[in-house]
Design a protein around this nucleic acid. Structure first.
Lengths: 139, 139
DNA sequence: AGTATTTACTTTCAAATTGCAAGTAGTAAT
DNA sequence: ATTACTACTTGCAATTTGAAAGTAAATACT
């Protein structure tokens, strides 16, 4: 669709070339909080992503090796998306964005157990969730 | 221009509503690394932002209280942009993005002194740069 | 003092992206 | 056998982006 050209050799700029939009990191968020998701699960998220945008973002994230598509057990129609190691490594950035939004934006859900736990002990939360997501991934 | 409607009460989603694009965080990056910048300085960055996009992003970031526009000393034409406290608080997220890009994307400048220093001691670097940017801001 | 240049934008317009709605094709359930 | 579910794709209007040119005020140059 679009050629993969980087605007510069800056790692920030090159990262934003991949996920610098309003949707990509929400997909990462959902996979971070739920471990795996189907296509339909993503469309049910409260931000209401359009299906064509979702299909495009899943494709880009998979091409970039950030997410992995697996077959759904005992079902030939469904697929299961999960974060790769590269995707799991994005979690610290997502967490920092969540913390910033939680403390600087009004009308955001400050009282979710997720944000509570991150605020209580960021390092501990990070280790816990990253360990969980990377479990059974020796394969 | 656009109404400020949030897609949800998720702090991540609401944050991306503000800076979820390819340019906003590059403006934050430049202000993080250079403390202050003029309009012209931003246009000279290697990613070559179009001037209309730059003007729009500066306006949004200022409206959101992330950056502050100050008069340039002894010059009535120039302006000086700097990060507010709210903008400085975005630095941890920017740093995490930089670290991710630096370790997971090829052809990014891994050898810049900035990235080197962050990798050596992230907490120390964060404190140093945030202290520097917030200095003389009792005003 | 008059002209050129710098600075910070704005405007114009084509191209690309987004987003809504509807359509499709292959399972799976009843 | 028919209906529903799941994961998309397609069509199209609306919004956003991006390149280029334009503008207006302030500064520098002669």
């Amino acid at each position: 669709m679009k050629t993969n050209e980087m605007r510069s050799d800056c790692p920030i700029s090159s990262s934003l070339d991949i996920f610098g939009d309003k949707w990509s990191l929400l997909i990462v968020r959902d996979l971070m909080l739920h471990k795996t998701r189907t296509y339909g699960d993503f469309t049910k998220a409260k931000e209401k992503i359009a299906t064509n945008i979702l299909a495009n973002r899943l494709q880009v994230l998979e091409e970039q090796g950030i997410i992995i598509k697996l077959p759904y057990p005992d079902n030939k129609v469904k697929g299961l998306y999960k974060l790769s190691k590269k995707g799991v490594d994005l979690i610290p950035a997502v967490i920092e964005i969540a913390l910033w939004g939680s403390s600087h934006l009004s009308d955001t859900d400050e009282s979710s157990p997720f944000i509570e736990e991150v605020k209580k002990n960021k390092v501990k939360f990070l280790k816990k969730i990253m360990d969980k997501l990377m479990a059974e991934d020796a394969a």
